[in-house]
Simulated assay, not measured.
Amino acid sequence: MSHLLIAVFLCLICVGISPTRAETGSLQLNGESSQFVELRPKRIARDTPFYDRDGISHTLSSYRGKAVLVNFWATWCVPCIAEMPSLDQLAAAHTNTDLSVLTISIDKGGLANVIPFYRRFSLDHLPVLIDPDQETAFADNDNPNDGEFAIYGFPITYAIDRDGHILGYITGRVDWQSQSATDFINDFLRGTEKGGN
């Protein structure tokens, strides 16, 4: 499948045309175009690399002990643009809690695209993280770099518990200031579905 067809498919998902989702688990979250999908069995995320603004490699194992939301996005994705300020507010509200909010751009242009985007939208509470070679997330069916996280649509947010288990994901824009998101985060931080398969 050509890259253009993949981009068209992903954009269709962004606006709410998405594959049928499995029934959700005990963590509940509704976005604009989908709901949280629980993964079974729950597996521990592998240590695939993503990079910060200084080019330093990071992996998810360094976040063990924290509940982690990993959001994969791109500067060209309209729902991502709409969602990022909400994620920034979420990160600001949880600066001193057990929640880490990681927003990882898969823009091919890497930092050259992402840093101006952060400045433009005053995203002061989110770390600048990139995965331009799809080493951690993959949108290409071939997954040439053995990425860990499938991108079913943009944006996509995965929930990872304190033990590193991938609990599930939600595609499309989420209002992270909504009551649904607040309830989700509270359940997530209380350890709902924490660990285990």
Rank of each mutant, 00 (worst) to 15 (best):
W76V: 08
C77Y: 05
V78D: 12
P79V: 01
P79L: 00
I81E: 09
I81P: 01
A82W: 07
A82I: 09
E83I: 10
E83M: 08
M84V: 04
S86H: 11
L87R: 01
L87C: 06
D88V: 06
A91E: 04
A93R: 14
N96K: 15
T97S: 15
L99Y: 10
I106H: 07
D107S: 01
D107K: 00
K108D: 10
G110I: 00
G110W: 06
V114Y: 02
V114P: 01
I115F: 03
P116E: 10
F117C: 04
F117Q: 00
Y118V: 00
F121V: 04
S122V: 07
L123N: 01
L123R: 04
L123H: 01
H125T: 07
H125K: 07
P127G: 13
I130H: 01
I130V: 13
D131L: 02
D133A: 14
D133T: 11
D133V: 03
D133P: 10
Q134N: 11
E135I: 07
T136M: 08
A137R: 09
A137H: 02
F138T: 00
F138K: 04
A139T: 14
D140Q: 14
D140W: 12
N141E: 14
N143A: 06
D146A: 11
G147K: 04
I151F: 09
G153I: 13
G153P: 08
F154D: 03
Y158T: 02
R162S: 09
D163V: 09
H165C: 05
I166P: 00
G168D: 08
Y169G: 07
Y169H: 13
Y169E: 02
I170R: 06
I170C: 06
G172N: 08
R173K: 15
R173L: 13
V174E: 06
V174N: 01
W176G: 08
W176E: 11
S180V: 11
